[in-house]
Every structure is written in C-alpha cells, then in structure tokens.
C-alpha cells in the first residue's frame, strides 16, 4: 500500500539573469505529472510589480497559492504605502519569510525572483523551498537545473563573492545577448529533460517596464 501524498512534482525549469540595467526571468510552460504532460501552455511566471517578477517550478498547487499570497501581500503593502509598490529586495525578503513560515509543511516550489534594485541594476534572488536565499548574478532552478546551471557558469561566470572590494555580480552581456543565451539554455535542457519543453516564456524587466516574449520549444 502506498501512501497518499499532499505533494506532486509537476516539473518545470526557471532561469534568471541579471544585467547592468535589465533582468531576465524565464520559465518553460510545460506542466507534467509522472510520464504525462498535463498541459503545454501553463505559465509559471508572475509579475508582482513593475520591478519584480517571480518564477517557480515544482508542485503546481503550492506554486499557485504562493504566487497568490505574494500578490496579495504586495497589494496590502501598496495600500499601506500610498500606492507605492514593494521594491525588489523587499519582495525578496518577504518571499523568504513566506517560505520559512511554512518551514514544517513547506511549499514544494523552486523559486527565482528577478527585478531591478533601487539603483536600477538587475537583481536575481535564488531560494530553497524553506526560505534560504541569496542574491546572485544568474541562477537556474527546477527540473532542468543540473543541465543549465553549468552552461550559465561557463558563459557568465561572475566575480567571486569573496572579492574585496566587492565586484558587481551582474553579467557583462547586453540584454539581447542574454536573451539569446537563455533561449539556448532552454532549447538545450529540452533535449534531455522530459519535464522541460513546449515553450519558454521570457520576461525582461528594464527601465521601460516589463516585456514578455515566448519561444516555442520541442513538444516531445
């Protein structure tokens, strides 16, 4: 007799890259369970504010709840602060608190938060399911993580966080180059990871606002 589980693994891969004046957050649109594809066009990315985008892979039920809870808290913050949306670093801390609050019945989600910090520089925050987080220059989470992360390390190797004086972790690539790199990453992961495919949704945040584009991936 097997046991009922409150969790499912619905797959998905998220990538985020921070640049000097932009940030890219991307995720594929496949939703799977076991060896079945549930649907091919399901967004995992939510725009929380003009400067803040969150992508999560993992268990779809928790992903939905988490995205809604954060959206609601962001709304409450805006109400209490004269309509001003939450900054990206503040959202990053709140996401950590939200995850940690459920430390003993965690959200089974693999999250990447991307946006612009106060100086307009790209910021990427990467999390584990129970709220540990770190600001980095680029990151990858979800079922394709092991396939994409080495590529990002190789192509974008940012300055060591141990350096003093600190060196910016943002990638030196231009926005267009970085978008191309992200597309290549997803096309590559889609070749080997059965939970990555169908399409990749790429959200670019820069001083002009938030832009969304989609690139088809293999359907197999």
């Amino acid at each position: 007799m097997s046991t009922w589980s409150p969790y499912d693994m619905n797959g998905g891969t998220c990538v985020a890259v921070a640049g000097a004046d932009y940030c890219i957050v991307a995720a594929d649109t496949r939703l799977s369970t076991g060896f079945s594809i549930l649907t091919r066009e399901h967004t995992k990315v939510v725009t929380l504010s003009d400067a803040c985008v969150l992508a999560s892979a993992g268990f779809e039920g928790d992903r939905k709840q988490l995205h809604k809870v954060l959206g609601m808290r962001q709304q409450v913050f805006a109400h209490n602060h004269g309509g001003k949306p939450m900054s990206c670093p503040a959202m990053a801390q709140m996401l950590s608190n939200t995850l940690y609050f459920k430390r003993f019945f965690p959200y089974y989600t693999f999250n990447l938060l991307g946006g612009l910090d106060k100086s307009g520089k790209g910021a990427v925050y990467t999390y584990d399911a129970i709220g540990s987080y770190e600001r980095t220059g680029y990151a990858c989470q979800g079922s394709g993580q092991a396939l994409i992360m080495p590529v990002l390390d190789n192509q974008l190797k940012s300055a060591s966080p141990l350096l003093y004086p600190p060196v910016s972790s943002a990638t030196p690539l231009t926005e267009a180059q970085a978008v191309d790199l992200v597309k290549d990453c997803f096309a590559t992961a889609g070749e080997r990871d059965i939970y990555t495919g169908d399409a990749v949704e790429i959200v670019v945040i820069n001083r002009n606002g938030v832009r969304r584009e989609t690139m088809p991936l293999k359907l197999d």
Binding site: T33, S36, L38, Q65
Partner: peptide
C-alpha cells in the same frame, strides 16, 4: 483541478483514465 490542487486550463481536458 485535482484533489491536491494541481490545476490548469486547456482546450481539452480529461480526468483519471481519460488523461491517458
């Protein structure tokens, strides 16, 4: 929507065996 809250929309859906 499933019993644990996995949900999606599509042009065609089926539950249980229907999915296969």
């Amino acid at each position: 929507c499933s019993m644990i809250g996995v949900s999606y929309t599509d042009s065609h859906v089926a539950t249980g065996f229907g999915n296969h």
